[in-house]
Design a protein around this nucleic acid. Structure first.
Lengths: 206, 206
DNA sequence: ACGTAATGAATGAATGTTCATTCATTAATA
DNA sequence: TATTAATGAATGAACATTCATTCATTACGT
């Protein structure tokens, strides 16, 4: 019984890239809604409109599905960040750009945000893979903006730039986590500038 | 067939060492090192020096084990926090105390910290349970210290206290996560005061 | 043009393994 | 002896992965 192939537009060919993306989206949705361990590969396949076995033509195994979501989306975010920073010299403005891309990217797709904020952290295996490479690069980018501002004379030179970078990242991360767990719907990216301002100015009256 | 006639919680004998606590510690260790889903109940039992079935005399099921670790340890931390805040009126000092208890508590037991920072976040089920109650109380305590300082005139009144509270929590949370993922060994609690100072003063030169 | 062969993407039932949980039995204790 | 605690082998459900088979499409030969 033919299930698939019904409503495909005549011109569009069944590109493999499309199908991979299709499965990735289905996996993102199910991982986000049921959790990685409780989502079954068979259900991911069904959601994508393919057979269970087809998933294994595009991905090594279930873990690879999760890792691929991360790598694919992270790569897109990195490209976005680089484009956004291009030609911007002012360190404070660079922090604003990073925060906007960070929250903007997550705030655009709730299921993906859940995968990033929750599912990817389910084991130190994934965490370490994540934190030792991409996260490190990201933290370094933040730190460099901070040291830049210190050399420029805008920021206090005695503050630890790496500590500040971690706090900055932690603050954004918490905004994202709060957003996905909140039943209130608001634009995540709208908090970016306030976070940066508070981080730069501090709470104390001047 | 008998369906989980729950509510049979064993009465502990004072003669033996607290077996419940023993199992909880074993579970913490294995969940931290193998991850919740990959740790087997049988291995938790073996680690605790009891039979597999014994675990079910003290806990409903595997989930209950994870939830119990959280509730038990969180309760202890809350008590510690309250004791530490007692009689301290200065809002900034209250923030310092909270940060020290937070990082001190996690920094004292690495396995427990891994369970808190990683394993408890593996599914929105646990996350929501966590964030809607205890975390909310904690965030409110931070927020209250901040509004206190605003009324006192120490902190800028135009800053959003709740946003600041989330950033504060996020910063501490990130310190903890960084600590467990780092192979460097350092005292987590040692960062508490620097985090609070930077948070209060901000990065910008005054 | 027509028939035939080759290709490989896709399928989904079957497999085999992995555990959480149970419960009949035994040990300990009062 | 009666009561409660503890045991651990057995159970069976869940589920990732495999692979023999199907079938639409393309290439080839005449």
């Amino acid at each position: 019984m033919p299930i698939a192939s019904t409503s495909r537009r005549a011109v569009r060919q069944p590109s493999t890239a499309d199908k991979r993306e299709l499965i990735l989206r289905a996996a993102t949705k199910l991982f986000a809604r049921r959790g990685f361990f409780h989502a079954q590969v068979a259900d991911v396949a069904k959601e994508a409109g393919v057979a269970a076995g087809t998933v294994y033509l595009y991905f090594e195994n279930k873990d690879d599905l999760l890792i691929s979501i991360f790598e694919q989306r992270m790569q897109e975010a990195m490209a976005e960040a680089n484009a956004s920073l291009k030609g911007v010299a002012d360190p404070v403005e660079r922090l604003h750009r990073l925060a906007r891309v960070h929250l903007g990217h997550l705030g655009r797709d709730r299921d993906m945000a859940v995968v990033f904020q929750v599912e990817l952290r389910q084991s130190t295996k994934f965490m370490e893979r994540f934190s030792s490479t991409l996260l490190q690069d990201y933290l370094n980018a933040i730190r460099d903006a901070i040291t830049g501002a210190q050399h420029e004379g805008t920021f206090r030179p005695e503050a630890s730039a790496m500590l500040a970078a971690k706090m900055f990242y932690g603050a954004l991360d918490e905004m994202a986590t709060n957003w996905i767990l909140s039943r209130r719907r608001y634009r995540l990216v709208a908090q970016a500038d306030d976070v940066v301002d508070l981080f730069v100015q501090g709470l104390r009256k001047r």
